[in-house]
Design a protein around this nucleic acid. Structure first.
Lengths: 232, 232
DNA sequence: TCATTCACTTGATAATTATCAAGTGAATTA
DNA sequence: TAATTCACTTGATAATTATCAAGTGAATGA
């Protein structure tokens, strides 16, 4: 792994306060792997062997049941995924695949647990991380249960616009099929939802979106910090 | 608080391994309050002042947005709620109200955080608890996104039947309006969903439910351990 | 260059779910 | 006992969402 990547990993909330020796140990044991797009990294139901950290590219967490499939989350660098399964020494609840060419750092679960046993700072960091993740899923569940598909899309666009600099422009970070899954709707319905939002100033050109009537869109979306603010 | 209640709290995964002195400290500071039914205990958006532990009765966690309201979870004794908000020193994402006459143990958030700073066992317990909660919400999200309303009800009934002893009988632990919210549907639709399940041997008499054709019901519900098994 | 693929869109229709409005019957209360 | 409340159900209808089937147009590849 390049030093630059290691620095980025070290900056993760999860590792930032870890004792230097322990971090060095983990990085010694960890290995970085590169994958082309659309490679399945983990499969739900299998035992959690490694903590995964997306160093470059993008990874989709998804789940299947009944022959149906849905996107649960899209993880972008630099972030960990499936931490809870590793800590509980349990099976994965979600599968993961690369959305694009990606490199992923793999740390054996047993080493994570070993460092946890001797590094107090790591404990604290894990608690903070888990609590944040938990709250993120609760927000996602509120989004699903309290909003229609069109409202979810509208709020998603508003969040992305803010995250991408508040210029009234945004670029969809994933293809529309994946976005539809993330928003809990079919691709066909996502198309129609974009159509519904046209009168509210949502201009679509491929992955490039312009929001020309932000006030109208906000009035429709009724964003709620307790659902949409990622920092709360 | 009666000694018996204190013993029950001590048995919670969260407190079981805590050092005796620290537990005694917390119990010293904590206070037990009794509430009639339908009292709102906390309100989403307010700062997390206390860790709550349901000692008797039942508490509904719910959320509102847009004038809509939904049940997120029903907490029964003995269990904690809103742990993540307390740990993060953040605002509550959910409101809580008693469903019936209940007693709730309140521990000031600052004391929780203080014990956390000096008790390693508590750290570990918090991690285990948070990881479990996180996985529970992920399962709930899979349930919502991968199943229709009727399927969610069918699987809910199968889970309850198992939890209540596997006798082919079960008693709904909450009124149907609350259950509907939990399952992400309207009360009217829950009624109709029960109707749809009649040919699958679901016999409803108030809160008493009989499952007379479990095989047929399972064939419809297609239960999935990665959604329905609470212990995974 | 032409064929093919692929992501996305559009249309028609069906299934699912929500809303509004009564209705029922048991339990509570005057 | 009669009135009232309340939880739940049922019916009619509307809104939302999914499914199936083409269609479009840009990108890829022979």
């Amino acid at each position: 792994m390049r030093d630059g990547d290691q620095t980025l990993v070290r900056k993760l909330r999860l590792f930032a306060d870890m004792e230097e020796d322990n971090f060095a140990d983990l990085m010694q044991i960890a290995y970085l792997q590169s994958f082309p797009r659309q490679v399945q990294l983990i499969t739900e139901g299998e035992p959690a062997d490694f903590l995964h950290i997306v160093v470059s590219g993008a990874v989709e967490l998804f789940a299947r049941s009944n022959g149906r499939e849905t996107t649960m989350e899209v993880v972008r660098p630099v972030a960990t995924f499936i931490l809870a399964a590793v800590l509980k020494d349990a099976v994965y609840l979600m599968s993961a695949r690369t959305l694009e060419k990606s490199s992923v750092l793999l740390i054996p679960a047993e080493n994570i647990r070993a460092v946890m046993a001797r590094d107090r700072h790591f404990d604290k960091a894990i608690i903070t991380e888990l609590a944040s993740r938990y709250r993120a899923v609760v927000k996602a569940q509120k989004d699903l249960k309290l909003r229609t598909g069109v409202e979810r899309l509208a709020n998603y666009l508003l969040r992305q616009e803010i995250e991408q600099g508040g210029t009234g422009q945004l670029v969809l970070p994933v293809d529309k099929r994946t976005l539809a899954g993330r928003l809990g709707m079919t691709p066909e319905n996502l198309s129609r939802a974009f159509g519904t939002l046209k009168p509210y100033g949502v201009e679509v050109d491929g992955a490039d979106i312009g929001l020309t009537k932000p006030d109208d869109l906000v009035r429709l979306a009724k964003p709620n910090p307790l659902i949409d603010d990622p920092d709360i």
